[in-house]
Amino acid sequence: MEKRNTSSDFILLGLFKHTRTHLPLFAVVLTMAMTSLLGNTLMLLLIHQDHRLHTPMYFLLSQLSLMDVMLVSTTVPRMAAGFLTGKKSISPTGCGLQIFFFLTLGGGECFLLAAMSYDRYVAICHPLRYPVLMSRQVCLRMTLGSWSLGAADGLVQAVATLSFPYCSAHEIDHFFCEAPTLVRLACADTSVFEYVMYICCVLMLLVPFSLILTSYSLIIAAVLRMRSTEALRKAFATCSSHLAVVGLFYGAAIFIYMKPKSYRSAAHDKVVSSFYTIFTPMLNPLIYSLRNSEVKGALRKCMGHNPLHKEMNREKT
């Protein structure tokens, strides 16, 4: 079989084709991506500006928004440029950077969601010890650990993936460079790497997911013992939002990275990948803002300080 030099560019076939059916779908996906960027950027600004949101819970939420902004920026611009200009080639370096940033952000988000579940566990089950168990130092360490573990996984997989020789069929049936898709094009035996990658996925996905399930099992047990209806309602509202985010993110990620190779379909992988790289980041700020009175209060306060908004209110009165 003919081998290609690894310095040759790869071709990203993209998410859509230039047809009348796919053009509206491209517009929808681009709108979702822009909504995700605007929503998560707004969350970052609100948390930064409102001192009432300077708590461990909202600091972790700001890191989630930052990761989502970067995740969308890693995949969507190149996909959109390829669709609009027809230039779908990507260099091995560019491909490696996409893999690195994608796994850094995706893996970091796994551990960050686990940290957020621990924060809610401490707040509900040990409220008196919350200032100690979730101090600024602890919060910073958990955040730094999430970023570091994600970066380590991203670096290892990016370097290992690009170390293989690639065949003449260098077309990637995807809209960004994702390690499981790229490995299919290798001309060498990748079984050992795929096994190691599977172990990494177990550690990056199932370990944090197990911590999240444990935290929320303890939270549910504590909530059921609450006698105050208001405390019960507030705890349920906060936890249900987090569980919705966890379910959306982990469901799609486990589908991609822990499904056996023999059951993989390029079309299905692209759809699911677009779900957790575009759709889920768009929903995160909506889930946390619409079900959170403090965030809505910060937004109203921000709007109240807006001169244009004040002028509109005077005109109405």
Rank of each mutant, 00 (worst) to 15 (best):
G154M: 02
T277W: 02
A222K: 14
F16H: 05
Y118F: 15
T229V: 10
A115N: 10
S217T: 15
I124D: 00
G251N: 13
L105I: 01
R52N: 13
A115G: 08
H54G: 07
L46E: 07
H309E: 01
H242K: 03
W147E: 13
S163I: 02
S73W: 00
L61Y: 13
V271Q: 08
L66R: 04
V207F: 12
S191R: 15
P127L: 05
R233V: 09
D269S: 08
V29T: 06
D189E: 09
T161F: 10
Y121A: 01
R78L: 02
I220E: 07
F83H: 06
W147R: 13
Q157Y: 04
F209N: 00
A252L: 07
L105K: 00
A244G: 15
L128Q: 15
L45W: 12
S163N: 09
R233K: 13
E109G: 00
C239V: 05
A115Q: 04
V202A: 11
R314C: 15
D153C: 15
L64D: 01
D50P: 06
S262E: 13
L30K: 02
L30T: 10
F193C: 02
T161L: 06
L308C: 04
S241C: 13
R141N: 05
F279S: 01
K270L: 00
T229C: 04
T317K: 11
D269A: 10
Q157N: 12
L205G: 11
T93G: 03
N5I: 06
L23P: 03
V207R: 05
K310G: 04
Y130S: 03
Y58Q: 04
M57E: 15
G297Q: 14
R227N: 13
